[in-house]
Structure formats: C-alpha cells, structure tokens
Nucleic acid binder design. Structure first.
Lengths: 200, 200
DNA sequence: TTGCCTCGTTAACAAAAGATAATTTAGCAG
DNA sequence: CTGCTAAATTATCTTTTGTTAACGAGGCAA
C-alpha cells in the first residue's frame, strides 16, 4: 500500500516540468489524518479551512434540509481533494457536514497555511490551480449529468464508471447524490434487472 | 454605461491589496468582442481556449443530446466569466456550444496567452484563482440545488434571485437549465399562479 | 394584412418519482 | 444461534414529469 505522499506525487506527475522537483517545503506543512468509519471530518457551522487529499476511503458531504432529510451533495474518494467550499471560497461557516463512510486516510493542509507558503514559494501555484480545476471539472461533470440525463441514466453511468464506489457506499447515499429517494433507486434497480440489462 | 474594463476593475476590487494596482500588462492582452443575438461564440468541436468576462448580455452553454434535443448546461450573464471547460481544463474539443441570447459585450483573453503573462507576472495569479473559485462556487451552488430542491423550488429560487434573467431568457432555456421540459415548467408556473403565490 | 414560424400553454395519457408504511434482508452484538 | 437494528425492497396511492399533439399569441417578412 502506497503512502499518501507517494500517491499524491504520482497524481502530480502531470505537473512535472511546471512544479519544482523539490516539494519538501510544501509537504512539510501537511498533516496525515486518520478517520474512523462514521467519524465527522468537518462539522456544520465549522470555520476551519482545511483542505485534504484523500489517500484512502470515502467521504460524504451532506446537508440537513428544512424537513430534516439529509441531502448528499457529493462523495469523494481516494485520489480526490476534499474541502469545505463554504469556508474556503466564501469564508462562511460550512453548511455541509463531511463524514467518513469507511476508514479514511487524509493528507491535510490548512488553506491559510497553503496561502502563506504560496507567498514565499509562488512556484507551487500550479498546484492550487490543479486542484481548483480538478474540483471544477468534477462539479461540471455532475451538473452536466443532471441536465442531460435521467436518474436511471445517471445511475447506469455511475455503475459503469464507479462500480467499486457503488458497492462500497450504502444505496441511500447514492440515491441522494443522484437527486432521488432510496425507494426510487430501488425501483430503478429492479427495472434494470428485469428489462434491458444492457449497461450504458 | 461603463466599459468592460471599468466593470471588471470594479469586480476586482475584492482583490485590492493582493493584486498589483497596475493591471496594464494584463489588459494589454485582452480583446473586446461583440456578439449579435444568436451568434455562436464557441462551436462544438472547437479547440480555442478563449476565456471571457461578460460585460453585457447573456450567453447560453448547451449541448445536443443523442436524441437531438438540446440541453442547457448553464447561462452566464454580465459580471460572470465564460469559457469552454472542455478545452481549458481537459484540453479536449468543446462538447458544448456557447451562443449569445442577446447582444453581448465581452472582454476576451486567450488562456494560453494568460498563462504566458502569468509566467512573467506571477503577481497576477490571484486573478486566476479568483475566476476559478468563482466558477467553482457557481457550479457547486447549482449542484446543491439539484440535490436539495425540487424543480419547482429551483424555479422559485431562480425567480427570487435572478428575476431579470428569467424575464430576458426564453422559458425553454430556463426549463432545460432546471433539468425539466418546457411543458413541465409551464405547469409549474400555472401551479404557482393558482395556488400559493408566496415565493421562497 | 396575410402567412409563416417559434414559443408558451393546454390537454390526454403513459411513465416515473415522492410519500408512507409494511416486509424482507443483512450485518452485528450478545 | 438469537435478537436487534438499519438498509433495501415491495406495495399502495398521490403527485409530478415526460411525451405527443393541438391550439393560440406574438413577431416578422413579404
């Protein structure tokens, strides 16, 4: 099993030539964090501006609606970044809760600390652009799926692209992320079993 | 009426202290662009990496689905940035079409040129972060609405937050952006007129 | 004015999703 | 193994949306 830093380095391979070879000053400020299953990483109302790279595990970002129901905004897994956009982008208390769905290994840095580093080491700026673009691309991809696809199509696509994830995460969270109820997802699964078993 | 540069400067006020007072080198590379109603700004399959600030008007980003229907991913209006995320983030030909819904005034820069400027003028980096974060925040806000709200609720919110926009843009594009059909939006409007007229 | 053409509305029906509750399944503690 | 609990499924009914088509209003060109 690779360490967090190894995996991240691997992921940053695309930035070779742009990013300095020596990333010591950067990683010196990072902290490894371990979360147990169901442990909360960021609480609602929290103001800490933590940014983390997920080395292992799945984190769910969700909010509690007025009616008391939970709504899952997104799931993040190994190889992705996780952060409270409310606190980092809008400097507001987090309206979302970030919780581990299974044991999680993180490599964490405080965004304010990162900004300090970037002041003295502007050569690491490509890194910030990298994860901002990565998160933007992921958000737009999800947005696109809501506009162009039906819930069933979104589920089929999720199955074909992230089969492992679907099997690791309880259906009710998958349903919520697709914008439907667990009951509805169950019916979609039934329809897929009986009729056209062909995937996307 | 303010010029593009004035409005953008105004918007960059938040960046005062971070961004150099002299933005001449930056704006020297920008080009004003005018689009007529229905004029296409970026075509499907296009590879140009244009990035633009919208001074005036509305631009619609949409794609053609397999069944031939159009799906509107997003609308962008004055004060926002517009760019093909396929070409800029993923370096792929644009899968979306960007078209003016009314006369549009843009302040345009090529992203590759911007990157060159940033190499020699790293002090402008906050600008890149600014628009990346702005676009990310907007995307996440839309994503959040899909997960937490019904089509009717999304429409009510759009009405209360962007009443001017709804009145400027044909309903069918609004519907598509909400993820529903024009017929369905018409029914929602009818329901709102008859029953509870209370907005969100 | 007349004749298109597009857009929004309405209607009628089918399909899908929401709400609620009962039932089954599965995982886990004892 | 038994019993508890949460998750998933199923059933029933209501509401909403999709689909298709018809209709009417408004804009625009001849």
């Amino acid at each position: 099993m690779a360490t967090s830093i190894d995996t991240l380095q691997e992921l940053l391979f695309d930035l070779a030539g742009v990013l300095p070879a020596d990333t010591t000053p950067l990683f010196a400020m990072t902290t490894p964090v371990l979360l147990e299953t169901n442990e909360t990483y960021i609480r609602e109302g929290e103001n800490s501006r933590r940014l983390a790279f997920i080395e292992q595990g799945v984190i769910r970002a969700y909010t509690i609606k007025e009616n008391g129901d939970e709504a899952t905004l997104l799931l993040r897994w190994e190889g992705q970044f996780i952060a409270s956009h409310d606190t980092i982008i809008n400097r507001q208390p987090s309206r979302f809760i970030y919780r581990a769905l299974e044991p999680v290994k993180l490599l964490q840095i405080d965004y304010d600390v990162l900004e300090e580093i970037l002041k003295t080491h502007p050569e690491y700026e490509p890194l910030r652009n990298f994860f901002l673009m990565k998160m933007l691309a992921e958000s737009l991809k999800m947005l696109e799926s809501f506009v162009t696809q039906s819930p069933e199509e979104r589920y089929r696509e999720l199955l074909s692209e992230r089969f492992d994830l679907v099997n690791r995460v309880p259906d009710k969270y998958i349903a919520s992320m697709l914008g439907i109820t667990p009951v509805s997802l169950s019916r979609i699964r039934k329809r897929m079993h009986t009729k056209g078993k062909t995937a996307t």
